[in-house]
């Protein structure tokens, strides 16, 4: 899934720089939104609606006269923040569950596998749409739906890692030494899992941003006047012909952030997937 077509060596070098630079930039944006914002993102000014770019409003104003740049920046914080919350919740629920299912086995494992199969039978987006449709629109419900869809992936991955590793002699030896299940998890299994979880999470990060934005776009997620990017896209729909830039800005923002997330994922995968078990 490499985004840039270069020689592998060059990609690696470029990637590290690209990622570091982008991360710094993004952090700067977040810091800026906390420290200093000229305009209120939700304050309407109908007299100044759909204004062209000016020093006062570098990206112009929208149909209600709100400053687009301010909304975009705040939207970044919201979109990324929501995604991180959903991601963290999915990991926090999924990882322990996978560890337990893998190590304990028995009925717990069987029940878990049935649930996982159920979720896997449908695409993520479909389940998320159905769930947030059932629960009603709203960002809280959307996040809940996303977590419900995503935790299974983490639990499954961790479970399969655990199942392959517990058969190896070093776990047997740890058991012979009387290490408790918890110590075996923490000391011997976690190092195997962390890398995989980080890689999966960074790839999921982009997907979740897209999911939040697209569901907000169809009106199931964040509600106006929240400056969420998908919701912004939705709001700017009627003005697409006269003021296309109103749609281009949030769209571009989504593309850039998802791209960064994917590049980060690729990089982490390279970093953790080096086959360390190769025989000399």
């Amino acid at each position: 899934m490499s985004v840039i077509a270069l020689s592998p060596k060059k990609i690696k070098k470029t990637k590290i720089w690209l990622i570091s630079a982008l991360l710094v930039l993004l952090l700067a944006v977040v810091a800026y939104t906390f420290l200093y914002l000229k305009h209120d993102a939700t304050m309407t000014d109908v007299g100044n609606r759909l204004a062209s770019p000016s020093w006062e409003h570098p990206m112009g104003t929208d149909h209600l006269g709100r400053d687009v740049l301010t909304r975009l920046l705040l939207g970044f914080r919201l979109t990324v923040g929501y995604s991180l919350i959903a991601l963290a919740a999915a990991v926090i629920i999924g990882v322990p569950f996978g560890l337990l299912a893998g190590l304990r086995g028995g009925w717990l494992d069987r029940v878990f596998m049935r649930i996982a199969d159920g979720f896997l039978a449908f695409p993520d987006t479909v389940i998320a749409i159905v769930l947030s449709g059932l629960l009603g629109p709203g960002i809280g419900n959307l996040l809940f739906a996303i977590v419900l869809v995503k935790w299974v992936n983490y639990a499954r991955m961790v479970r399969s890692t655990v199942l392959t590793e517990v058969q190896k002699d070093y776990i047997t030896i740890a058991r012979i030494n009387g290490l408790s299940t918890f110590t075996i998890m923490r000391r011997h299994l976690l190092p195997h899992i962390i890398g995989n979880v980080l890689v999966l999470a960074s790839l999921d990060f982009g997907k979740i941003i897209l999911l939040i934005s697209s569901l907000s776009y169809i009106g199931l997620g964040a509600q106006p006047p929240t400056p969420e990017w998908g919701a912004m896209l939705n709001e700017s729909r009627p003005y697409f012909q006269a003021n296309p830039e109103m749609m281009v800005y949030p769209g571009l923002a989504i593309v850039v952030v998802v791209l960064v997330a994917n590049v980060l994922g690729d990089y982490l995968r390279d970093k953790f997937d080096v086959k360390k078990e190769v025989q000399p």
């Binding site: 190896k168 002699d169 070093y170 047997t172 030896i173 012979i176 030494n177 009387g178 000391r187 011997h188 190092p191 195997h192 360390k276 078990e277 025989q279």
Partner: peptide, 20 residues
Amino acid sequence: YRRNVQTVFQNPTAALNPKL
């Protein structure tokens, strides 16, 4: 008993955690 009975297995690659 566990403290006093230790073991060495056939395959040293499997007996060491590759991530440690």
